[in-house]
């Protein structure tokens, strides 16, 4: 594991901690998309099925369990928590997730390495992760004056993807025969989706203003 991959994972971990902190400290999930969180839970559950039959390292196992549990925890807060659930604005969070999940499943059934249940589900999770942030970005666009922690959460999530790009470049240069086209192409699309957000995030940060995305 190289430094970019590790930094990427830590940024991913931090983004989730920031999100949980925001929800727990403010007892509010304003500006957080339940749809995106549910998509992430689906991504993690379909990707980490290998927890049941393959072991890579204690690090990997811990991170996989953390990602599954933490997204489950965020969903629980938004849906079930007495005070937090009242701050969820379902009227704004209207993205049709089936429009994302169905094409990803069709693509996973068509373009994959191996036509087995676990491999197709793994491929599905790679495709779905690439677009799972879209409901969150749409919600941010509808929210005037995004609160700082929610903005930081999305920024860290995007940062994690950018670090994974560097990780792949490093691996291409140092590991002979290393290639994974499905992951590279999906990951590049996933990172590109954040470009617009990055632009406005950095602009608002430099001008010392609250973040608000133009609609």
């Amino acid at each position: 594991m190289n430094i970019f991959r590790f930094a990427g994972d830590m940024t991913h971990l931090l983004s989730i901690i920031v999100l949980l902190l925001k929800i727990n400290a403010t007892k509010s999930c304003a500006g957080v998309s339940l749809k995106t969180q549910e998509l992430y839970l689906l991504v993690f559950v379909t990707r980490y099925l290998d927890l049941l039959y393959s072991y890579i390292s204690l690090y990997n196992t811990f991170m996989k369990l953390f990602f599954i549990c933490s997204s489950g925890c965020v969903i629980w807060y938004i849906r079930e928590h007495k005070t937090v659930s009242q701050t969820y604005d379902s009227a704004q969070d209207t993205f049709r997730v089936l429009f994302l999940a169905c094409p990803c499943m069709i693509l996973a059934l068509t373009v994959n390495h191996d036509f087995t249940v676990t491999e197709v589900l793994w491929t599905f999770s790679i495709y779905l992760e690439a677009v799972a942030i879209l409901p969150q970005l749409v919600l941010l666009q509808r929210t005037k004056n995004v609160d700082t922690l929610t903005g930081n959460y999305v920024f860290l999530l995007g940062g994690y993807r950018a670090l994974y790009l560097l990780n792949w470049i490093y691996r291409i240069l140092t590991e002979p025969g290393y290639r994974q086209w499905i992951v590279w192409i999906s990951g590049t699309i996933q990172t590109a989706i954040y470009c617009d957000f990055f632009y406005y995030y950095i602009k608002s940060w430099r001008n010392n203003e609250r973040l608000s995305l133009p609609s």
Binding site: D50, S54, I56, N60, M63, F67, E119, W122, N167, Q180
Partner: peptide
């Protein structure tokens, strides 16, 4: 082996 390597990332 190839397939296994591809799944070493999170």
């Amino acid at each position: 082996q190839d397939l296994h390597d591809e799944h070493d990332e999170l």
